[in-house]
Amino acid sequence: MNRIPLVLLTGFLGAGKTTMLNALLARPDFRDTAVVINEAGDVGLDHLLVEQGSDSITMLEGGCLCCRAKGALAPALANLMRRARQQDLPPFKRVVVETSGLSDPAPLLEGLIADALFNRFFELAGVVAAIDVRTFMGAADQHPEARMQAALADRLLLTKTDIATSGETRRVQEKLTLLNPHARQCLVQPGTVTMPAFWPEILDLPRALAKPHLICSPEPAAIATASLIFDGAIEPDALEDWLDHTINLLGPTLLRMKAMLNVADTAQPTVLHAVQGLLHRPVDLKAWPDEARRNRVVLIGRDVEEQILADALARLAATGRRRTAMRKVSYQ
């Protein structure tokens, strides 16, 4: 069964998340989308509602669904799946979860990945953060949630660039690069955001990791990142041992792991996500993005030394190199 991709849309107060969603929901290529609003209070989607009532699920123009969730996300997703399977609702192909502006995305991701229903029916497509270039510097200095939203994102959408100076935009881009050197940064204008600009593809990962060496962030917010690209096939047992050791070692300090791996005797690349010590069910892509079949891994940690992340990546890379060496010996 094909699982439904889910994107977590985050961003600090006033960053323009709802405005962005409103624009996307009006586009034909955003049909068949369920939007879960994880927000306490009203949200600015009223002008798109075509069906009112006390139901927590509302039909939107273009065939989309809006579901309001207070607290845990898993029950809202379960309700969507139940009603879609009972044909009370039209089927949907993707889900966007819009979080509160004051939310730390790490516990939300942890709650989803720990949920059995989520692992059965959904796959994490990525985290998108809306970044207000006019206010982000102050928000990041004063609010750890703003830093976490940027640090855990796969894609950073810089909003309000039309009313910001080029200097303001540049300083925000430099700050974001320190917080999260692996995320793709996109400048978006009001009402013009498109599906390709918004929706992170898993294949963002190899484009983000352009150099085959470690990249560590000296950001003083106690958030460290490291990434590595390396060759060689990884034996399943060696991968399992590495995952057990790394997750047990880092525990909740491992905010996020993203990996595209060449697992031995598997034709397709294997994609892994982990959040705060919890591993999401692996996903096999249909094909490699290139012929090199290179492994790519990103680790994002909090209150952990960068060298510990680098050492963990080096241990995994060593297993790939050992497999390559064994194959070379066998051919002689």
Results as ranks from 00 to 15, higher is better:
Met1Ser: 15
Gly14Phe: 04
Lys17Val: 05
Met20Trp: 10
Asn22Leu: 04
Ala23Ile: 10
Leu25Gln: 08
Arg27Val: 00
Asp29Gly: 07
Phe30Ala: 13
Thr33Pro: 05
Thr33Asp: 07
Val35Ser: 09
Val36Ala: 11
Glu39Arg: 11
Val43Leu: 14
Asp46Phe: 02
Leu49Arg: 12
Gly53Leu: 08
Asp55Pro: 02
Met59Pro: 06
Met59Arg: 15
Met59Asp: 12
Ala69His: 04
Gly71Pro: 04
Leu77Met: 03
Asn79Gly: 10
Leu80Trp: 06
Leu80Tyr: 06
Ala84Trp: 03
Gln87Trp: 07
Leu89Phe: 12
Arg94Ala: 10
Ser100Lys: 14
Ser103Ala: 15
Asp104Ile: 03
Pro105His: 04
Leu109Tyr: 06
Ile113Lys: 11
Ala116Ile: 10
Phe121Ile: 08
Phe121Ser: 15
Phe121Tyr: 15
Ile131Thr: 01
Ile131Cys: 03
Val133Arg: 07
Met137Thr: 13
Gln142Gly: 11
His143Tyr: 12
Ala146Pro: 01
Ala146Tyr: 01
Met148Tyr: 01
Met148Ile: 02
Ala150Ile: 01
Ala151Val: 08
Ala153Ser: 03
Arg155Val: 02
Leu156His: 04
Leu157Gln: 00
Leu157Gly: 01
Leu158Gly: 00
Lys160Leu: 02
Thr161His: 06
Ser166Arg: 13
Glu168Ile: 05
Thr169Met: 11
Arg170Asn: 09
Arg171Pro: 03
Leu176Trp: 00
Thr177Arg: 08
Thr177Asn: 02
Thr177Ile: 00
Leu178Ile: 03
Leu179Glu: 00
Ala183Gln: 07
Cys186Trp: 09
Pro190Trp: 00
Thr192His: 12
Val193Gln: 06
Thr194Asp: 04
Met195Ser: 11
Pro196Leu: 09
Pro196Val: 07
Phe198Leu: 08
Trp199Arg: 03
Pro200Ile: 08
Ile202Leu: 15
Leu203Arg: 12
Asp204Lys: 06
Pro206Cys: 04
Pro206Met: 01
Leu209His: 05
Ala210Lys: 08
Ser217Asp: 02
Pro220His: 02
Pro220Gln: 05
Ser227Ala: 11
Leu228Met: 11
Ile229Arg: 13
Phe230Thr: 08
Asp231Gly: 13
Asp231Phe: 04
Gly232Tyr: 01
Ala233His: 04
Ile234Pro: 07
Pro236Cys: 06
Asp237Cys: 09
Asp237His: 10
Asp241Gly: 08
Leu243Gln: 09
Thr246Pro: 07
Ile247Val: 15
Gly251Glu: 12
Thr253Lys: 14
Lys258Met: 06
Ala259Met: 06
Met260Ser: 05
Met260Trp: 03
Asn262Asp: 15
Ala264Gly: 04
Ala264Val: 00
Asp265Gln: 13
Thr266Arg: 13
Gln268Asp: 15
Pro269Gly: 05
Val275Thr: 12
Asp284Arg: 14
Leu285Gln: 10
Trp288Gly: 11
Trp288Glu: 09
Pro289Lys: 02
Asp290Tyr: 03
Asp290Glu: 11
Ala292Glu: 15
Arg294Trp: 09
Asn295Pro: 13
Asn295Asp: 10
Val298Ala: 01
Gly301Trp: 08
Ile308Trp: 09
Ile308Thr: 14
Ala310Gln: 15
Ala310Met: 15
Asp311Pro: 03
Asp311Cys: 05
Leu313Cys: 09
Ala314Arg: 13
Ala318Trp: 05
Ala318Glu: 14
Arg323Val: 07
Arg327Asp: 15
Arg327Asn: 13
Lys328Glu: 14
Ser330Lys: 15
Tyr331Cys: 12
